[in-house]
């Protein structure tokens, strides 16, 4: 067997061990070493050279990246999640026929969908969705994300919040917590557009805060432009009003005249 592959396998088993005992610092360290090693494998994307070890290499690389994704969820690092997922994706998309599909594929894809939902990147969410085969939609992990998105779009936020109880995979919990925050942001945005002002009690209820203090903190952090006075929250809408634009009649007349003059000069 190829010494490089052996080395990676050994390193990976050390990683898995650390992963199992939740020693994340070691994991991160090992992972970056692993990634560097992986760049030495010519059979990996994007070159896909056909070496005798190609299948083995691809499999282990995929495994490493799947673990990396899960790790990033565990250490709650969204950037790392996105990075690792992007690097993992070619193994799902482009390696059919070389290595068998991974059992982890759908949970991780669903996780990604959830992440996009959390980050409120709805367009990308749908792009990802379109790339999946129809059968994949039946998978509970994917289905979960799709349903969430539908509820989210309908504005049935209570359903979104209650879905936390029915997660298909334990890794999903992290994102479900984040989703609550996204829902709140969405509600805040709607309220801002919908109302001129709102009493503090109502606002607390709408934004699902348990105390006024939390509300105040939230407003200070996320919407400093809101004003709190006389027991109400005022949404500053005045600044958005802009007058309807005037028709630049003089300019248009001038232009037309100059066209006419030019036309006359045309030989």
């Amino acid at each position: 067997m190829d010494p490089k592959l052996v080395e990676v396998t050994q390193l990976f088993s050390r990683f898995k061990a650390a992963f199992a005992r939740n020693d994340f610092d070691t994991c991160v360290d090992l992972l970056s070493q692993l990634k560097v090693r992986l760049t030495k494998f010519p059979s990996l994307p994007p070159s896909f050279q056909q070496t005798p070890n190609a299948v083995e290499e691809l499999k282990i690389a995929r495994d490493i990246y799947e673990h990396a994704v899960v790790l990033s969820v565990k250490i709650e690092d969204q950037d790392a999640f996105e990075r690792d997922f992007c690097q993992l994706k070619p193994y799902y998309m482009d390696t059919c026929g070389i290595i068998p599909p991974s059992p982890q594929e759908y949970p991780i894809l669903g996780l990604n969908l959830l992440r996009l939902l959390v980050q409120n990147r709805i367009a990308e969410f749908h792009t990802e969705l379109e790339l999946l085969p129809v059968t994949a939609l039946e998978n509970p992990c994917i289905k979960h994300a799709v349903e969430l998105e539908q509820s989210f779009m309908e504005g049935a936020y209570n359903r979104v919040l209650s879905a936390r109880q029915a997660v298909p995979h334990e890794t999903y919990v992290y994102f479900m917590d984040l989703l609550a925050k996204t829902v709140r942001d969405e509600l805040a945005g709607c309220s801002e557009k919908g109302y001129d002002y709102m009493s503090i009690a109502e606002a607390r209820q709408v934004l699902m805060f348990s105390s006024d203090k939390e509300l105040h903190q939230y407003i200070a952090e996320e919407h400093p432009e809101w004003e709190i006075k006389d027991g109400s929250v005022f949404f500053q809408k005045a600044k958005e009003t802009q007058p309807c634009k005037e028709i630049p009649s003089l300019q248009v007349i001038n232009q037309t005249l100059s066209y006419a003059r030019e036309l006359e000069r045309i030989v």
């Binding site: 994007p46 896909f48 056909q50 190609a54 990075r83 992007c86 994706k89 070619p90 026929g97």
Partner: peptide
């Protein structure tokens, strides 16, 4: 062999790799 036709369908993986902290990966 089918693998001959294999091509990556997207560069997003590579682009993501650019964000990696390790210089070798970049």
């Amino acid at each position: 062999m089918a693998a001959a036709a294999v091509m990556v369908s997207s560069a997003s993986g590579l682009l993501a790799m650019l964000q990696e902290p390790a210089a070798e990966l970049k």
